[in-house]
């Protein structure tokens, strides 16, 4: 495995573990200072429509998402479990790489019922930061775009 691919795998593994543990501040640290984060229904992607379910075109907006999640949003009480597939490097640039990785997120509710909450593709642009990467763009293209109940915790 190339060093870049290994670093990308490591980043994705941390990414899933931090969301699942609800450590959102540490999760934010995986993103670079200038970054974007979008969750876009596959339906809109295929129709060429720009709107997303979550649309953060700046780091400030992504931080606001987490702030709102913490102090304002009410949502179904649950635990997340990310299953992230192997990434594929789709572009190499001097200062970073672009990857795609399939994912599934299961939600478990308080009485132990688990459901497949979301599945789709991560389309990420990773920026080199020493030996590792930071996420400068993340597009979560969601196949399961009929959202079950609501979408609050990050995918």
């Amino acid at each position: 495995m190339s060093a870049d691919l290994f670093a990308a795998c490591d980043l994705l593994a941390q990414y899933g573990a931090l969301v699942d543990a609800a450590k959102y501040d540490e999760w934010l640290e995986l993103f670079s200072k200038r970054c974007s984060y979008y969750v876009k229904p596959r339906e809109n992607h295929e129709l060429g429509l720009p709107a997303g379910l979550i649309f953060c075109d700046s780091r400030a907006m992504l931080e606001d998402r987490i702030l709102a999640l913490r102090i304002a949003s009410k949502y179904n009480l649950h635990n997340d479990r990310h299953i992230i597939g192997l990434p594929r490097i789709v572009a190499n640039e001097p200062d970073g790489i672009s990857i795609e990785a399939p994912f599934a997120v299961y939600q478990t509710e308080q009485e132990g019922d688990t459901r497949l909450f979301a599945t789709g593709l991560y389309c990420d642009r990773l920026e080199r930061s020493g030996d590792s990467f930071k996420i400068s763009e993340k597009l979560v293209r969601i196949d399961s775009f009929a959202i079950q109940t609501l979408l609050a915790t990050p995918l």
């Binding site: 969750v39 720009p50 709107a51 997303g52 379910l53 979550i54 649309f55 953060c56 075109d57 907006m61 998402r65 709102a68 304002a72 949003s73 009410k74 949502y75 179904n76 959202i147 109940t149 609501l150 979408l151 609050a152």
Partner: peptide, 27 residues
């Protein structure tokens, strides 16, 4: 203005800042 609307789309829908709760309340 279009970019502003795409940003404010964060307010509504299943992940909307002022609408996600409705899904939970009704359930």
């Amino acid at each position: 203005m279009r970019q502003h609307r795409l940003r404010q789309a964060n307010l509504v829908g299943p992940a909307g800042f002022v609408s996600m709760e409705d899904g939970e309340a009704i359930e």
